[in-house]
């Protein structure tokens, strides 16, 4: 940073960043990873039953790769813990006001895992009501988080990303950062029913991308949105914090998927504490919010 004072050095650094971003944007590997994906049931028009289109993802990949490599400078840990094939449920903490954490987890499995694996996130029911966003999400393979949709995808041996905190996690206020909110239990029942391994995932860095001073609840009710955060930047756009994505060991749960809430709750707690341990590790590993 000491050399940043000279204007010529600033320009040089900018030029360097611009050229590396351009390189990522046109990197053939970024789109080639989509061709390596297998196991999707596409129809003759190139769409699956939920509207996912690999060709569309190819077009969405360059901006995602730039965000992944240059904006959030994402570092992944133990990515091989995500199995190469077979059904899997990735359970992650949710943060950052806008779901860049989900996008970066998905991108990490495409860019940093070899061979790549497609990840499909379960999204809020609110998302399909949004113009443009709904189309983007559906074409990228995101599915509305109903149990039936999840069951269908798991039976097709797909990898599913679930944020059990839901809206309570992503829109939490600054003072609550890195405190996992209440987990929903649905993912555990599905995992037990379909005998799916659970892979805990922690995202560190997304918490600080947007400072949410307070949730404006009256406005959220009025606009019919899950939350309206009040942020210093007005729009909840992310700052370039450094992302650390940590993958944990697969957890297997057996037993009666229809057991009562307390029994399921105990198992959910095990997943939650596994994610908490990963978050702790991530916080230890990083040198600061931006590095």
């Amino acid at each position: 940073m000491s050399s940043a004072g000279k204007p010529s050095n600033v320009l040089k650094r900018l030029a360097f960043h611009a050229s590396s971003i351009r390189q990522t944007w046109s990197d053939p590997e970024v789109t080639q990873c989509i061709d390596k994906l297998t196991g999707h049931h596409l129809n003759e028009h190139g769409y699956d039953a939920f509207g996912y289109s690999p060709e569309y993802v190819k077009k969405a990949m360059p901006p995602c790769a730039v965000l992944y490599r240059h904006y959030f400078r994402t570092k992944t840990y133990d990515i091989h813990k995500v199995p190469q094939s077979g059904r899997a449920l990735l359970i992650a903490n949710h943060s950052g006001q806008l779901p860049f954490d989900g996008a970066m987890i998905g991108t990490s499995l495409l860019l940093d895992r070899d061979p790549p694996r497609m990840l499909r996130a379960m999204v809020e029911r609110w998302v399909p009501t949004l113009p443009y966003v709904s189309v983007f999400m559906a074409r990228c393979g995101q599915v509305v988080g109903t149990p039936d949709n999840c069951r269908q995808l798991l039976s097709a041996d797909e990898a599913i990303l679930v944020f059990p905190e839901g809206a309570a996690g992503i829109s939490k206020e600054w003072k609550k950062r890195y405190q996992l909110q209440q987990f929903g239990y649905g993912f555990m029942r599905l995992a037990m029913e379909t005998n799916t391994p659970i892979i805990p995932v922690a995202v560190v860095g997304a918490e600080e991308q947007t400072v949410n001073l307070k949730n404006w609840e009256a406005m959220a009710k009025l606009l019919n949105t899950p939350a309206v955060p009040i942020t210093p930047t007005i729009l909840p756009l992310p700052m370039p914090t450094k992302y650390h994505i940590l993958y944990g060991d697969a957890l297997h749960f057996e037993g009666d998927a229809n057991a009562d809430e307390t029994r399921i709750g105990r198992r959910v707690k095990r997943v939650k504490s596994a994610i908490e341990a990963l978050v702790e590790r991530g916080l230890d590993e990083r040198a600061g919010v931006f590095r």
Binding site: A49, F50, G51, W126, T129, V143, V144, T146, D148, N149
Partner: peptide
């Protein structure tokens, strides 16, 4: 609707 299932078999 936003609340209905996306993949429908006869049991839906």
């Amino acid at each position: 609707s936003a609340r209905s299932q996306e993949y429908l078999n006869e049991e839906a």
